[in-house]
Nucleic acid binder design. Structure first.
Ligand code: MN
Ligand code: MN
Ligand code: ZN
Ligand code: ZN
Lengths: 141, 141
DNA sequence: TGTTAAATGCGAATTCTTCTCGTTTGTACA
DNA sequence: TGTACAAACGAGAAGAATTCGCATTTAACA
C-alpha cells in the first residue's frame, strides 16, 4: 500500500497522490519531470491534471517522499527519495543520468562550509559529461 | 577598453555589449540575473532592451567571457569569467553567495567520472546553507 | 450517511526566456 | 570619408515551465 507513506505525510490519500507515488516507484531508474509524470498518467483511466501533478510533487518534496533536481534545461526533475543521498552525472549528449556518492567529497563539503561560518543545509553536485554508451548520439570523439 | 575582448570574441563592438561588459566588470562581487543587468542599465542614458541583455549574455557565455549559474529559484545568474573556476555557497536566507575552490573535490570528480566511463565537460557544485552575517534575516538558530 | 475541510481539474495568470521583424548601426572597402 | 550590407538592436509577441483562482469533487471522521 502506498497509502501509509502518504498518510504519514499528513496528506489525504487521494487517487492522484496514490497514482503519482506508484508511478515514481515503478521508475526508480529514471528522473521524471512533471510533464513526464503527467503524460505517463494520461492513458491511465481517470485523468490527473497537470496542476495537480505539480502540486503533489511539491508536497511530496516537502514531506521528504521525493527529491527535486534542477539539471540544466530549465525544468525540474523528480525521483523517489529512498533515504540515502546521492549526486549525479548527466550526459550532455543523450541525457542519461548516473548516480554516485563519494564520501571524500561529502566530507570536504562539510569542512568548507564550516570554515566559512555557514550551516550546511543541502547541496547539489552535478557532473556534466559525455557518456560512452553505444546508443548515445555523440559517442564519437 | 572593453572593445578588445568583444572583438576577440568575433562580435561587433556595439554600445549594449560594451555597457553590459562594463557593468559586469563593476560587479565582480555579485552574481547578476538578466533582469538585474537590465535594471542597472535603465538609468544609464541610452536604453538596452531586455531581449538584447539575454542575447548578449548568452553570446558572452559562448565566447567564454561570462559564466552562467543556475542556482535555485529558476532564474540564471551571470558573472564575469575571470579565468579560474570556482564553486558556490549560497545562503538560503539572504541569498548571499560565497565562492570557493577545493582541489580535493575537483580531483575526486575527475576520478569518479573516469571510473564511470564518462568524459567530464564541466560541473556545478552548489552548497546551500545558512550564513552567519549580521544582516542575514535568519541568523538566529 | 452527512458534514466539512482538503484536494482536484480546468483555464487563466506569472515568470523567465526566446523569437520575429522592421529599423538601426558597426565594419569593410571603395 | 561615404557607401553597402550583414550584424545587431528594441519592442512586443510567443513559448515554456510553473503557479494561481475558483467552482466542483472527495476523503476523513463523527
Ligand atoms: Mn538520482
Ligand atoms: Mn561565482
Ligand atoms: Zn550519452
Ligand atoms: Zn544569509
Amino acid at each position: 500500500m502506498d497509502d501509509l507513506e502518504i498518510r504519514k505525510a499528513g496528506l489525504k490519500v487521494t487517487l492522484p497522490r496514490i497514482k503519482i507515488l506508484e508511478l515514481l516507484r515503478e521508475h526508480t531508474d529514471r528522473h521524471l519531470s512533471a510533464e513526464d509524470v503527467y503524460k505517463l498518467l494520461i492513458g491511465c483511466e481517470s485523468d490527473v491534471g497537470l496542476a495537480t501533478v505539480y502540486r503533489v510533487l511539491t508536497q511530496f518534496e516537502s514531506a521528504g517522499l521525493v527529491k527535486r533536481h534542477n539539471f540544466e534545461g530549465g525544468q525540474s526533475v523528480f525521483e523517489l527519495d529512498r533515504g540515502g543521498h546521492h549526486d549525479h552525472i548527466v550526459c550532455l549528449d543523450c541525457g542519461h543520468v548516473e548516480e554516485f556518492i563519494d564520501e571524500v567529497i561529502e566530507k570536504r563539503q562539510r569542512t568548507i562550509v564550516k570554515e566559512k561560518g555557514f550551516a550546511l543545509e543541502k547541496h547539489a553536485l552535478i557532473l556534466y559529461a559525455h557518456c560512452s554508451r553505444g546508443n548515445c548520439p555523440n559517442r564519437n570523439r
